[in-house]
């Protein structure tokens, strides 16, 4: 076979291949485009994060939904055995503000949970019941940070680490100079603080 015929056969095969790619596999056409075609964002605009209660009977799920300029944080508690889920808290924030689920979020008896909000340089902690039961003044949630700030003007709240028992949150504090200070318990039903002799590091 002469060389020109070989070259012709090669181009015919190549042309047929191109036709096949365009006709049969249309979604692959972007591979042959001279410049990438911008596609819709591949990132989902809803993210999920979930944690189980210590006994595995409940779970807490955070669903983050990205809006145009804000992010909506929605928290759902699920009774695993009954397979029932309820929305217990929702808040819309502007990035970089955020709300997260601490590892020790659930109270030991699964009656309460707490969340951690990072807003600018301030950290806020919210406690709520897992079944939407309001607190004594009808509030749906308590802001532990607000109670703390009103009572302790010479301390800063470093962290809420978890639950010392079903009704007591463990708080670690610092002095205004940033040095570690004593720990406190926050009693949920009375909204009162108990100073501790030791620090719960």
């Amino acid at each position: 076979m002469s060389k020109p015929i070989k070259i012709l056969i090669f181009f015919i095969i190549f042309a047929l291949l191109l036709l096949f790619l365009f006709a049969v596999l249309p979604h692959q056409s972007s591979l042959l485009a001279p410049t990438p075609t911008p596609s819709a964002s591949t990132k989902p605009n809803t993210e999920l994060m979930s944690i189980d209660s210590p006994d595995g009977k409940f779970s807490l799920t955070l669903k983050k939904h990205k809006n145009q300029n804000t992010i909506t944080y929605s928290f759902f508690v699920k009774d695993v055995e009954k397979n029932e889920e309820i929305l217990i808290f929702t808040k819309e924030l502007v990035s970089p503000d955020s709300i997260s689920i601490p590892f020790n979020s659930f109270s030991p008896n699964n009656k309460y949970l707490f969340l951690k909000e990072q807003a600018n340089t301030q950290t806020n902690y919210y406690v709520m019941s897992t079944n939407l039961t309001p607190f004594k003044n009808g509030e749906k949630y308590l802001s532990v940070s607000d109670f703390f700030t009103k009572k302790y003007d010479k301390l800063t709240l470093e962290d809420i680490t978890g639950w010392a028992d079903p009704n007591l949150l463990v708080l670690n504090t610092n002095t205004l100079e940033g040095k570690p200070s004593y720990s406190l318990w926050f009693e949920i039903s009375s909204n009162s603080f108990i100073q501790l002799a030791t620090r719960f590091n």
Binding site: D52, P54, D55, G56, F103, N104, F106, S107, P108, T161, G162, W163, A164, D165, P166, V170, F200, N201
Partner: peptide
């Protein structure tokens, strides 16, 4: 340990406390 939920911090009288689901 079902009486507290402060894991990541010392709480016990010597034992190693775990979340019940982790202990199981």
């Amino acid at each position: 340990a079902y009486w507290h939920n402060n894991f990541g911090h010392p709480m016990s009288h010597g034992c190693v406390n775990m979340r019940p689901i982790d202990a199981e």
